[in-house]
Design a protein around this nucleic acid. Structure first.
Lengths: 332, 332
DNA sequence: TTGTAAGCGTTATCAT
DNA sequence: ATGATAACGCTTACAA
């Protein structure tokens, strides 16, 4: 029983084209006519048929979001939920809809990608946090699907938004240096992810800027999980660092546990600084000093970039880096 | 440069109708023709235009998911992520797409609802965990939008899927009784939510079945947050319960903290049992005995119910209750 | 400023 | 079994 333009037009005493113009805010409609039409629209509760409209406009006002991540990270970190929130806000503000694709299992990866690529509804796509080696990106390029990455990418033709991981990590390290530390360790994240790589780089830059030589004994490699944070801390202990920069709060909490188990006090014996500012960080004992990413804002920005990309298909690749924030608490 | 049926037909030497039949698995196509057409389709990478198709079929293969929850719960509990995962799996298995609506702020509630209701793309809707009093439900009914609720609803005409909260809570309480407890307290969840109400009911049933009278001093009211769990435990202490059933793990962890702070041992002094089985529950000290909901399965079931509803619009309202599972750990 | 009419790419009906 | 052809509801030249 849903109405068509034709019927609304009949009720308002105009043609369907006029009603269409009114709905699309076309300027050349007489004011009294416009009013009359709106009245009918409101009274009848008419709404345009989305599919019919996009058949002719070639636009659906739908953007896809794909999160190519394993379940683990999805649950251990609120990152993705925050990101989706930001994207939602960006979409709402611009009258777009959000279609979500989750990778439900590792071996369904290819099928999920195919699904997204063949999804005929999408005007464009936001790819949340792909691994650098991910096959999805070249596929999207080949299919000429407009997309924006969350997290930087080495390919120059890719539009992306990212947090200032390098500067953020460097700031963290320099904060430790300012507090008098010289033996500063690091537990890295996965170096095959942009975040993990960049934070490691920021660590090195921070030391370098203050002429502190790198010490392999002070470098442990983790994979962003709490367990790897514990292992990393164990690995670092023999080198007796006075402070450790941990590339994620989740890992930092693991490190904290190890320090406590081995009878060390934080920050007196070992200072700790994390990255991400997950909710738990302010709840642990001692509350964790950390670096906060503007996650929701990254989501909104991704939407902005994508939509401008849709309007200007040939435009230069955009790379937006959003500043991080040092959150000082009590762990150093 | 995307192809149309017409063009594919030309390449295969048939009419567009035949190609359409091939794509839609219509039986009356000669086998050799069918093969020839498929070959062209694969070679050209043709894919049907989604909007054009749904203009005539009146189906989009898109279902909406709205999560009318405040940000807090969204982040403190992995419930919604798990649910979305289950829904995603249900959708993938049936060739449906998922459109997500999040309530980004309390005061945008009405706007968000309107958005969902006016969203012309949706074949149907899954409403995740609405409050009982929510205005969204009657609105959806008025607009005749097919929808399924996650979490029960008092209205008899509503299709829903829910966990067996009553039985689950009762099982938890009876587990405590079996362990010899008689002074069993409860920290309830929000009683204006189905879950909160049902778990309270299960608690009462469990006691009643064993002829243990209700004691107001042993009942504290929480709102599912950790803070309210702490407050609830404080409130209960004067009545000196030997065991407490806490209506959510998040609150149970709050209760645990209070018990530890006041020098009580768990389970020796006070046994604790939670609900939900969030990841943290197995990590705390002592690991929490709790009741697990089949969240992902609830999501999948919601999809099933919705799709069957789409096929049989007049069907009887379905109410599916999925069994919970008692997870025995060390807190009682 | 407004109306007429021609598509947009499908599916579905009706001949053949 | 296959091919014309008429919808589906909208936008958009083109005319008036």
């Amino acid at each position: 029983m849903s109405l068509t333009l034709e019927q609304v037009g009949k009720l308002a005493g105009v043609s369907r084209s006029t009603v269409s113009r009114v709905i699309n805010d076309h300027p050349s409609v007489r004011d009294d006519v416009r009013e009359r039409v709106w009245e009918v629209i409101h009274q009848t509760g008419y709404q345009p048929h989305a599919a019919a409209r996009s058949l002719v406009t070639r636009r659906t006002q739908i953007i896809g979001v794909i999160i190519p991540e394993t379940v683990n990270r999805l649950f251990t970190e609120p990152f993705f939920l925050r990101l989706i929130q930001g994207i939602t806000e960006g979409c709402n503000a611009r009258g777009y809809h959000l279609m979500l694709s989750l990778l439900t299992s590792r071996d369904r990866r290819e099928a999920t990608y195919r699904n997204v690529i063949r999804n005929g509804y999408l005007d464009g796509l936001i790819v949340a946090s792909a691994e650098l080696s991910d096959s999805l990106i070249p596929d999207l390029q080949r299919e000429e699907i407009p997309f924006v990455l969350v997290g930087r990418h080495t390919n120059r033709h890719v539009h992306y938004v990212d947090a200032g991981n390098v500067v953020g990590a460097r700031t963290a390290v320099e904060h430790l240096i300012r507090l008098g530390h010289r033996r500063i360790g690091i537990i890295t994240g996965r170096l095959d992810t942009p975040g993990g790589d960049d934070r490691f780089r920021g660590y090195r830059q921070g030391l370098e800027a203050h002429h502190i030589p790198l010490d392999d004994g002070l470098i442990a490699h983790g994979d962003f999980t709490e367990g790897s944070g514990m292992a990393g801390m164990q690995e670092l202990l023999p080198a007796s660092p006075t402070a450790v920069f941990v590339s994620s709060d989740t890992m930092a909490i693991g490190a904290l546990k190890v320090l406590r188990q081995t009878g060390r006090r934080v920050p007196q014996d070992v200072a700790l600084i994390g990255f991400d500012d997950i909710p738990l960080s302010s709840a642990v004992e001692p509350p964790l000093t950390t670096v906060r990413q503007p996650i929701a804002q990254m989501g909104e920005t991704a939407v902005e970039i994508l939509l401008s990309l849709l309007d200007h298909p040939g435009a230069e690749p955009q790379a937006v880096i959003l500043p991080t924030e040092l959150i000082i608490r009590e762990s150093c």
